[in-house]
Amino acid sequence: MLTLSAYVYLYKMLNAPAEFASFVIIGGTMVAFWSNVLWNMSAQFYWEKETGSLEVYLVAPISRMAILLGMALGGIVNTTLRAAVILIAGTLIFQVPFMLQEPFTALLMFFLTIIALYALGMLFASLFMLYGREAWHTANLLQEPVYLLSGLYFPVNYLPFIIQILASLIPLTFGLDGIRRVIILGESITDTWLNVAVLVVFILVLLPFAKFALNYMENLGKKEGRLTLRWQ
């Protein structure tokens, strides 16, 4: 939120059109969810591992995905609140313009993005499960680069083409683009169907893959006896 405001002020100082401020604020709102995925869900496995309670979970006959979902849901109330604060406060403080025409499209886009993000989070969780500290560092490391690539704070289409391709590998990029177009520019589902389609594809690919990765990592972990190893 604080960094966010700094970016808004930077746009302001540059005399950029007001849409850019809306752009940043919507970006910030989505970051809240992204952080939840990364830190509450993926990193949760890491915390549990640290405290030794991961074992307990793994012994329980519940699917790993259910556990992860539970963890994410635990944080989602908080996250939603946080996101709402960012959205409302940002809108009020900076008086950014919105031209929302189709709220349902916006919601659809929003939920698809969230699901895609959570699928990605599960994938990360499998890494956290095994690599604890390294994965933690990597996630930490990737924070700003992901912000950069997914165009949280500026339209990606200004970026060089190569980078745009790289950026399109992150579901956040498409979701964000879609949500913004619907909310800020007042576009309709017919303009943004491509975003919806891409998000659906992401979900269809990521979910099974995440499931596979979780199982794979768990087995690997058991084989190498690393699941219960604490950070060194």
Binding site: Y7, L10, Y11, L14, N15, A16, P17, F20, E144, P145, Y147, L148, Y153, F154, P155, Y158, L159
Partner: peptide, 19 residues
């Protein structure tokens, strides 16, 4: 990455500004 973010904001913001 953080430098690039502000850098791009700067470039894009300047481009989009009325002047």
């Amino acid at each position: 990455a953080s430098l690039l973010i502000v850098g791009f904001i700067f470039l894009i913001g300047s481009l989009a500004s009325p002047s």
